[in-house]
Nucleic acid binder design. Structure first.
Lengths: 160, 160
DNA sequence: CGATACTCGGATAGGTAGTATCCGAGTATG
DNA sequence: CATACTCGGATACTACCTATCCGAGTATCG
């Protein structure tokens, strides 16, 4: 899994706690998370294309959430950044080799692929149930509130 | 996910329906599935190292299952070939940037990582529940029995 | 008992996707 | 209207997956 997924989720979590009328540029998001700005920008593009964040240009531009945190699931972010292609790819090798039959005999998907895809669906279901809003309450409890204070101070700093 | 996972599962399924005293060399397994022999050999090494298949050298050597098909799960094969490392890697970016606190404050794992890992566990659980033996009954029902006849004929051919 | 032909196992190149970066088009501001 | 700042796509670099080969070892056959 691409590292950008982790960055994207953290960015959404940060944007979720910002006032609605504040947008953060990619450079600020990168600074806050300590990651390369140029590369993070690429992933933010993907989030923007997927309709998860909104982008504004110009002097006071930047990124903000396009939807309520409750309406953004982890699956949305994963699909936006890593693509929504299936992880397991069936190359239909049962149709190759000396025991192969006419292609018309293989109407149902390969049982191996079905089992792999079912497991993958369980993974996607779990991700779909967890939203950015759910994460926020957990994150706040895991770390001393001092972190929120420092974050707010930094936000004041860069907003000046 | 590596393509070798698909090959490994198909190989286990084929070995599972062979008589116990028959071993198939990597070259025959590759021929049956229509895949590159040299590359399949590499994945069979991984299955052997994981104790899923047994290898025998010499004139009548080859691979056979090391355990009963009921005792080989899809997760075993996936871990053997793709490695058992977590798909989502947490780089602890919450400890970086201007809002970072002392490392001792982060005793619990990051909530984002916990959510991602929980979903991953659901995926692993689903794979662990499905065994090679479970697959065999499905595969037999999906395809006309003619395939089994052709497979048996081919086996006779190469065993001569 | 020895030669032989066949097997696995690890070490060695190539290709594709992810990683990292840059500069130009466009916009809200002053 | 000039300007400074933003996003967006096009461009190199890197690591993993893909693909291959040859040597060590063994059961067989004469």
């Amino acid at each position: 899994m691409s590292e950008g997924v982790e960055w994207g989720i953290h960015c959404c979590a940060l944007l979720a706690v910002l006032p609605d009328d504040i947008a953060l540029p990619a450079s600020r998001l990168a600074e806050f998370h300590g990651v390369p700005a140029a590369y993070l920008a690429k992933h933010l593009q993907a989030l923007s294309a997927a309709g998860i964040v909104e982008s504004g240009a110009g002097r006071r531009g930047g990124y903000r959430l396009a939807r309520h945190p409750r309406d953004i699931s982890l699956l949305d972010v994963v699909d936006a950044i890593d693509g929504d292609t299936r992880v397991f790819r069936c190359s239909e090798i049962r149709q190759r080799g000396p025991a192969a039959l006419d292609p018309s005999c293989y109407r149902k998907a390969c049982g191996i692929a079905r089992a792999m895809w079912a497991a993958e669906q369980a993974w996607r279901d779990a991700l779909a149930q967890q939203t950015i809003a759910d994460l926020l309450v957990g994150l706040a409890n895991d770390v001393p509130s001092e972190a929120a204070v420092k974050a707010a101070a930094w936000l004041q700093e860069v907003s000046r």
